[in-house]
Computed example of a mutant assay.
Amino acid sequence: MDAMADPFGAYRPRLIRLAYRMLGSMSEAEDIVQEAYIRWHGTDRAAIREPGAFLSRMVTRLCLDHLKSARVRRETYIGSWLPEPVVESALDPDGEDDLSLTLMMALERLSPLERAAFLLHDVFGMDFEQVATTLDRDPAACRQLAARARKHVRDARPRFTVSSDEGRRITDAFFTASRTGDLATLQNLLAENVVAYSDGGGIRKAFLNPLLGIRRVAGFFAGAARKWDSDIPSVVYRGLIDGLPGVITRESDGELQSLALQIENGLVTAIYIVRNPEKLRHVAASAGLSEH
Rank of each mutant, 00 (worst) to 15 (best):
V86D: 07
V87F: 04
F174D: 01
A222R: 03
G243F: 08
I32W: 01
F175W: 08
N193Y: 05
E251K: 11
T161E: 10
G254R: 10
G42L: 04
V131K: 01
R45I: 13
G243M: 02
D65C: 02
G95S: 08
S290Q: 14
I170E: 06
R169P: 09
S80H: 08
A270E: 14
A206N: 02
D98M: 06
S198Y: 01
D65V: 11
E278Y: 06
G223F: 02
L23K: 05
R157S: 13
R238T: 15
K205A: 15
F8I: 12
A287E: 12
R204I: 03
E50V: 11
A270C: 09
K205Q: 13
L62Q: 04
R71N: 05
R71T: 06
A218V: 00
R74V: 08
L15Y: 04
R73Q: 08
T180K: 07
E30H: 05
S178L: 08
N276H: 13
I271M: 07
F174W: 13
E35M: 09
S178D: 14
I271L: 13
M105V: 13
V86T: 12
Y37R: 11
F118T: 01
G125V: 09
A29G: 09
Q144W: 01
P93I: 02
E114T: 00
E88Q: 14
A218T: 07
M4E: 04
G52E: 07
P93T: 10
E30D: 04
G79S: 14
E30P: 05
D6R: 05
A173D: 15
D229E: 15
V123L: 00
D31P: 02
P93A: 15
R215Y: 03
L240P: 10
P85M: 15
N265V: 03
S25N: 10
T161Q: 06
I273C: 11
R216S: 14
R168K: 12
G223N: 10
F124R: 00
S230F: 09
E255P: 06
G239P: 08
S163Y: 05
A225Y: 09
P93L: 07
A10N: 09
E28R: 06
L82N: 09
E278L: 13
S252F: 14
R17A: 13
G266H: 05
R157T: 10
I38W: 00
G9Q: 08
A70K: 04
T161C: 03
K68Q: 08
G254F: 09
A90S: 15
D253R: 06
L15P: 05
T76G: 11
A224E: 13
D199C: 03
S234L: 09
L208V: 12
I32E: 02
P85W: 00
H292A: 15
L99R: 03
E255Q: 14
S56K: 07
T134C: 03
F8V: 13
D172P: 06
P112M: 00
A117S: 02
I48L: 02
P83M: 08
A36M: 10
G243P: 05
E108F: 02
D97L: 09
R250P: 14
E166S: 12
N276W: 00
F8N: 06
H41S: 10
D199F: 01
G24T: 01
A225F: 09
T134M: 05
E75Y: 01
T133A: 12
I78F: 06
D229C: 14
E30W: 00
A224Q: 13
L119K: 01
S25K: 05
